[in-house]
């Protein structure tokens, strides 16, 4: 088991990525702290993991509330005695186009996506140091390496890159690594959820792999960054986007299909 004897705190752990990550971490032997505002979903996930033979603890947490952070870390210390892995997957992806974003929305998105992550790192790093070091994984987005239509979201994810690299700098001597996982478009767990994300433009055809990620595929990459397999990786990103950002300028779907048709004709002519 790749996370035996490790304790991992996951924010946003009832979101798509958080949930898949919590399940995978527990399977790999970690004690998992499910940190989320959603009490029902958080307790249900903790119960599910515990029943399946894993170790999980639910803590109620609004990532923008320092008091709740202090309380959460106290519970982690009481229950598990240490902390090695912090996964920041809590985020607001509220649509915020520059033409219609009011400051209240802008600030709220920054609070959750950026300031919440700063609080997480500041609160957890001392306990991680005490526990012999570890790994911080921040969930970024392709919107944080490109210009996206959602201005506040894109800005926070670019900001997250700076925060992560600066944290990697400051925490290196405490043996804490810090990296960003830049995720592409992630499929929902159930078809019903798709109804809620109807605003997302169709991206499938612009992705090299021609499909969205399954949450488990993002979780696998989080596991890599959290585990000792990545022991020489810090202050960096891991892009998990199915080749979306890399080839985007050349992936207008008609053009790609036409190109491949021409190629295939040429190859079969040979």
């Amino acid at each position: 088991m790749r996370l035996a004897n490790k304790v991992a705190l996951i924010t946003g752990s009832t979101g798509k990525v958080g949930r898949a990550t919590a399940r995978l971490f527990a399977k790999e032997g970690a004690a998992v702290v499910i940190a989320t505002e959603d009490e029902d979903a958080g307790n249900a996930l903790a119960l599910e993991i515990n029943v399946a033979g894993g170790k999980a603890l639910f803590v109620k947490l609004d990532v923008t509330n320092q008091q709740q952070w202090d309380e959460a870390i106290r519970q982690v210390k009481d229950q598990f005695g240490g902390l090695h892995i912090l996964v920041n997957s809590a985020e607001s992806h509220q649509l915020s186009m520059i033409t219609q974003t009011d400051l209240k929305t802008w600030n709220r998105i920054f609070d959750v996506n950026l300031t919440g992550t700063l609080m997480a790192i500041q609160t957890c790093a001392p306990l991680m140091k005490e526990s012999g070091g570890g790994s911080i994984v921040n969930l970024g987005s392709v919107a944080g390496i490109s210009g996206s239509y959602s201005s506040a979201y894109s800005s926070t994810k670019w900001g997250l890159e700076g925060l992560s690299r600066s944290a990697a700098y400051m925490l290196a001597d405490w043996s804490i690594r810090c990296n960003v996982l830049q995720a592409g478009s992630i499929a929902n767990e159930t078809p019903e959820d798709n109804a809620n994300t109807a605003t997302e433009p169709p991206v499938q055809e612009a992705i090299l792999l021609r499909r969205q990620a399954r949450p488990e595929e993002i979780a696998n990459a989080v596991l890599f960054l959290a585990s000792e397999d990545s022991s020489y990786i810090t202050g960096n990103d891991l892009v998990v986007d199915g080749g979306w950002s890399s080839a985007a300028p050349y992936l207008l779907s008609e053009r790609q299909n036409r190109l491949l048709e021409i190629l295939q004709e040429k190859v079969s002519a040979k």
Partner: peptide
């Protein structure tokens, strides 16, 4: 890494950044 393609992983201990 089934959803990872067309990218790099920098394994440098935080040298370049």
């Amino acid at each position: 890494s089934s959803y990872v393609t067309g990218t790099d992983i920098v394994v440098d201990g935080g040298w370049v950044t």
